[in-house]
Amino acid sequence: MIEFPLDDDQKDCLQEVCNVAMGVAGESLAAFTHAFVELSIPKIRSTIPSELASSLGCVNDGGRVYAAVQPFTFKQVECFALTVFTQASIDDLMTVTGREELEIPLEDAKRDLLLKACNAISSSCLPNLSHALEIPISFSEPYSCGECVTLSELVLNDIASWGQLLSVEINYHLEDHPFNCDLLLLFPDVSFNGLTQALNELMAF
């Protein structure tokens, strides 16, 4: 049994901070897709790397996915933002962004779209998470970790060595579209002290 690293108040605080950050990412996704983004309540879980893929609720329909990873540094600890799109989401994005008509190989177009969509979501979420937590967060470019693969085939070598991890799962759905993706903010166990300290400071303010 994994011990949950946050108490109820810290969990509530992290959920609210992520709620604000995910809202800004939702605005960015809405601008990218010209659609209305349906937001859900962030789900905070404690898990281990080998069980991460199976814990993904919203995109776990047994189908294939596209995913990208964006590393970020939080209090000198490397964490990851993982964005997972169902295959139908990428196909939907191909249509709404007019990329179907471009004369480039389909898989190249989909990879480009995966990284652009990931940028629209995680690259706008992270600065706002930093602002809300009042902690500097630096991040690098996203890279693909799986295209048209099953969830268990995602290449997540960077987190495989982690022990316990905390995952914040944020689902984005587009109204009247098949689009469905999950943004996961993944914090390794070595970041828990820094994270709880930041949350405590925020609550004391």
Binding site: N19, V20, A21, M22, G23, V24, G26, E27, A30, F36, V37, L39, A132
Partner: peptide, 25 residues
């Protein structure tokens, strides 16, 4: 008072009768 800052969310709540929309935090 919401973190859902899409312009369309603001329009929808105003149409539904909200007086105004304040962006969180």
């Amino acid at each position: 008072i919401s973190g859902d800052v899409q312009p369309a969310a603001r329009e929808r709540v105003l149409q539904l009768g909200a007086l105004d929309f304040i962006r969180k935090p």
